[in-house]
Amino acid sequence: MAVINIRKREVQIKIVYVGPGRGGKTTNLEYLFNSIRHRIQSDMVSIKTHGDRTLFFDFLPFDLGQIQGYRIKTQLYTVPGQVKYNATRKLVLKGVDGIVFVADSMAVMREKNIAALENLIENLTFYDIDIYDRFPIIMQYNKRDLADEGIPLLDIATMQGDLNAKLNAPFFEACAVRGENVIPTAKKAISATIISLQDHLA
C-alpha cells in the first residue's frame, strides 16, 4: 500500500513490472532510466546473476513532482521472472500499488505468459489483493519487432484472450529494446495507480 505522509504532503507509490523470464522487464526499466537519468537524482539499482539475469530485483526510484499539492515519489521495481525465484517475487510484491505485466509475444512463450500471470494472481492473493477488483494493472505485449526477423509471434487477439479477457486492462504493443511504448506504458501505470489510490482514499 502506498505510503502517504500528510504532514509532508508526500505520496510514495510502488509499481512492479512482472512477467515471464527474459520477457523484457529489466529492459523496460533500463530504457526508462536512460530516458530520465538527467532529470533525477537517484540511480537504478540492479542485482543480477553472472548470466545477466535478474536475481533479486531492479529498483528505479524517482520524484515525479507535485500533483494537486502532493509530491509523488515513484518506485519502479522488477521481479525475477524465472520460476524458481517465487519467494523473491512474493517479497518484492509486498506493498505493491500497481502492476505492469510484461508478456513475451513469441509464440513459444504462450504457456509461460499464462503461468506468470497465474503466479502473479496467486502471489497477490497472499497479500489480500484481488487483481480483478479495480486493481491498477497494465498489459504490455513486448517484442513485437521480432516479427520482422521471421520469429513466430502470438497475435494480439490471442494474447488478449489468454491474459486480458477477464482483466480488461489497458494494453500496449511494445518493443522495449527500441523503447517503443515503454514510456506510454509507464505513464499509464503511474496514472492508473494514482487514480486508484485516490479512489481508495475517497
Partner: peptide
C-alpha cells in the same frame, strides 16, 4: 505532470 516529466511520451 507525466508529460512534463517524461516529455511527449515518445522517448528518444
Amino acid at each position: 505532470q507525466l508529460d512534463d516529466f517524461f516529455g511527449d511520451g515518445l522517448g528518444d
